[in-house]
Amino acid sequence: MHFVQEYGAQVISTIPTVPYIFEYGDESKVQIENPAALSFNAGKRITACWEPTVIATIIIPSEYVGPVIMLCSERRGEQQEYTFIDANRALLKYRLPLREIIVDFYNELKSITSGYATFDYEDSEYVSFSI
């Protein structure tokens, strides 16, 4: 997608990428950010895969807890903490795959909470997944 910004500068917009780690049968590892760069070599079989995760902290009005838990579950989230700050607000902490939050997670979160959610995250560890 091409856009023209102020002063006639052309901007190229792309979908963000996430670095994955793949391990082959010979125990060699490779970090890949673009799926096209993953070479499928007949002599090498992928034996393990890891993806980056984040620990997300979400503060929301209590009435939105159910829909936010559903959103995080749909995004393969793993609940770490669920507490009430006071009678009106809840704090949720989830481990989420980075790729599940980089495109539209924040917009969806704001939409289902009528704009009242706060969202912060920090890098966490790589977690294995099945392909």
Rank of each mutant, 00 (worst) to 15 (best):
E33T: 11
K110T: 03
G25Y: 00
Y20F: 15
T47I: 15
F119T: 03
Y116H: 13
E33K: 06
E78N: 13
D120I: 00
S39D: 03
L71K: 00
N107T: 05
P16G: 08
Q79C: 07
Q31Y: 02
S73K: 12
D123A: 13
T17A: 03
A117F: 06
H2N: 14
F84N: 15
V103L: 12
I32G: 04
E122P: 04
P16S: 05
V127H: 12
T113M: 02
N107W: 02
A48R: 15
T83R: 15
S39N: 07
T118L: 05
I55T: 12
F129M: 13
F22M: 10
T47Q: 07
Q79T: 09
V54P: 06
S39K: 13
I69W: 01
I85Q: 08
E27S: 14
Y126I: 06
P97H: 07
N34L: 01
K44W: 07
I32F: 04
V127R: 15
C72T: 08
T47F: 05
Y7T: 09
C72M: 08
W50N: 09
F105R: 01
I15C: 10
G77Q: 09
S114E: 04
A117E: 03
T14C: 06
Q5M: 14
L109T: 01
D104M: 01
Y94I: 02
G25D: 14
V65I: 13
N88Q: 15
R95G: 08
E122D: 14
R45Y: 05
Y7S: 08
M70V: 05
S13Y: 13
T118Q: 09
K29L: 09
G8H: 06
D123P: 10
E125T: 13
Y126Q: 10
I101Q: 00
C49L: 14
I32E: 04
I102G: 04
I12F: 08
F119E: 04
I46F: 05
F105A: 01
D104A: 02
D26M: 11
I58M: 07
T14A: 10
E6C: 06
A90N: 05
Q80L: 15
G77V: 08
E63Q: 08
Q10H: 09
M1N: 11
I102R: 02
N41Q: 11
Y116C: 07
Y106S: 05
S114V: 04
I59M: 06
T14V: 11
T47C: 09
F119Y: 14
R99E: 11
R75C: 07
R45N: 08
E100N: 12
F22S: 07
K29E: 14
V4C: 11
Y116I: 00
E125K: 13
K93A: 02
K110D: 02
N88L: 11
R89N: 14
V11H: 09
R75G: 08
Y126H: 10
E23F: 04
P67L: 06
Q80T: 07
P67I: 11
P35Q: 06
T17W: 00
Y82K: 10
A37S: 09
L98N: 04
I15W: 07
E27D: 12
I46P: 13
A37N: 09
E100H: 05
R99V: 04
Q79G: 02
A37H: 11
A90H: 08
E6I: 11
L38F: 03
A90S: 15
V18Y: 03
L109C: 01
S130D: 15
V127S: 13
S130L: 15
